[in-house]
Design a protein around this nucleic acid. Structure first.
Lengths: 188, 188
DNA sequence: ACCTGAACACCGTTCAAGT
DNA sequence: ACCTGAACACCGTTCAAGT
């Protein structure tokens, strides 16, 4: 998405500053961090925040889109280094860690795999659904996962595993265990 | 928990009215429903709400504790009618449906299986952890589930499955599918 | 013993006035 | 073209005053 016209210098400065402060605020307080405080800490008026980011979700997405896209690239790195089944498992683990680590990330990743329509169009939705699609296709071709497994449902289940791990503690210590239970199933 | 002294008639009336309005409000708007509006709709001052329910969570728990305890009894009904493995699966399904159905329920059930310590002491924690404990023990004795499966982690994973299903839609149509994936595992 | 509702602090969001 | 900050509505929470 190339910027048609470059932003005015002061606007650009405010924009960057808002993103930086927002990333911290969302990481610490979650998706409901106070927007008014973000504006204040960034040294801009409330109106400036709303001009750059018309909705809370727009700010949240802008604040974390880099990390999400890095996760997308990470999928391909893992696909090169590891057999398809292991690459998938390892990527899911990193996805879950990211989900828990920054408090605001959970809402963002949730929205990125919600519902179907609108989510897939966002940058985060594209990155994460694309990555999962490639990893699942490769794993399926090798017979490492069941043939009827859809990438989108796997992403939702991974979000569920992250949620479950978060209920145990915020440190993510249970992620491996819960991911193993999901992969292997509950039967003996 | 027997009431040491019965409440004064007006207090009792306010208490009941608050619970009723709160149950509707939480069901519709989720756990963050406006407390001030609940008080207003119940026709009481804000102070009265806080007197009866010192925290938002206390009100949420009081509003839904009946339903949660019914779910606990339901576990034993199912255990009588069905083989242990099926009873467990069916109960998990009903638990997930309940989790999604009333918007406020998710936060309550989440808290009931969070973290260990404080949760187990609440009425909801006791009911739900007790039920899961009995069902898992029976299923384990029959070899229907893996021997190392802890009730608490199963409850957390079920909460994750409910979360995953909610990402697909609020109608719970995906619950069976996601529960099957969890039970059977992701491998072919 | 219990209730009311004003009071305070804080926040989301908009918009007239500025540069 | 962009910014500021006052203004409005709404909410959580407390507490003095009532009955």
């Amino acid at each position: 998405m190339a910027q048609a016209r470059p932003m005015r210098a002061d606007a650009r400065r405010n924009y960057e500053r808002l993103l930086q402060v927002a990333a911290e605020a969302f990481a610490e307080h979650g998706e409901n961090a106070s927007l008014e405080r973000i504006a204040r800490r960034a040294g801009v008026g409330a109106g400036t925040l709303y001009r750059h980011f018309p909705t809370r979700h727009a700010l949240l997405e802008a604040a974390y889109v880099d990390r999400i896209e890095a996760l997308g690239r990470r999928a391909d790195e893992l696909a090169q280094r590891l057999p398809p089944g292991e690459a998938l498992t390892e990527w899911l683990h990193e996805l879950c860690v990211a989900t828990i680590q920054l408090r605001g990330m959970k809402a963002l990743l949730g929205a990125a795999v919600a519902d179907g329509g609108a989510a897939a169009a966002t940058a985060c939705g594209t990155a994460v659904q694309g990555a999962a699609g490639r990893l699942v296709a490769a794993a399926r071709a090798q017979g490492a996962v069941r043939a009827d497994l859809e990438p989108i449902e796997l992403l939702r289940l991974a979000h569920g595993v992250a949620t479950a791990s978060e209920l145990a503690n915020r440190r993510g210590e249970e992620i491996r265990r819960y991911l193993t239970l999901l992969t292997e199933g509950l039967r003996p």
